[in-house]
């Protein structure tokens, strides 16, 4: 059982994190402006980390990347792995619900899915065999991704109308 003081600290830490992540009221006694400044910087920090680790995603989302990621980041907390790539994959999933993804963005998402598995300790590179098949709407192609233990990930495209 938690002691009263431990419980009080635990409660305030939870309130502070919710204020930072969900924009709920800042707990009493804290500098409201500074806490809100940190809350804003957290989304920027996630966006910058993603841009460093997954530049092709940023390029393929295009000019609206900052606006879109900011909207996503303000409503979706960092994944439990706290990993920037996993954050990027969750961003792509959010984006796909909002608007039909371009072929390029679908390929980015499929490449992630073929390679990575998210765990609480971070991302784990998938081993063994794996396969991804998708029909790309824009280019009217079938995309096949194959992971083998000896060759890693390989991708093929085939016209869909044959």
């Amino acid at each position: 059982m938690m002691s009263a003081s431990r419980e009080a600290i635990s409660d305030t830490q939870a309130d502070l994190v919710r204020a930072l992540v969900h924009g709920t009221p800042v707990p009493a006694g804290f500098d409201e402006q500074r806490v809100q400044a940190v809350a804003r910087s957290l989304v920027n920090k996630r966006r910058q980390a993603l841009a460093r680790i997954w530049p092709s995603l940023v390029k393929r989302v295009g000019d609206s990347f900052i606006a879109k990621f900011t909207e996503y980041g303000q409503t979706h907390p960092l994944p439990t792995s706290a990993n920037a790539l996993a954050d990027g994959r969750a961003f792509l999933a959010w984006l796909a619900v909002k608007e039909p993804p371009t072929d390029d963005l679908r390929i980015e998402a499929l490449a992630y899915d073929l390679r990575w598995r998210e765990t609480p300790l971070g991302l784990c590179r998938r081993g063994g065999f794996g396969i991804k098949i998708a029909r790309l709407a824009q280019s009217e192609k079938w995309l096949l991704g194959l992971r083998t233990p000896w060759r890693g990930d390989r991708w093929w495209g085939m016209p869909a109308n044959v």
């Binding site: 830490q13 994190v17 992540v21 910087s41």
Partner: peptide, 14 residues
């Protein structure tokens, strides 16, 4: 982190 939420940031303690 707290309340199941990751902040990705080092936060002060009392």
């Amino acid at each position: 982190r707290a309340a199941g939420l990751e902040t990705g940031h080092l936060l002060p303690i009392p």
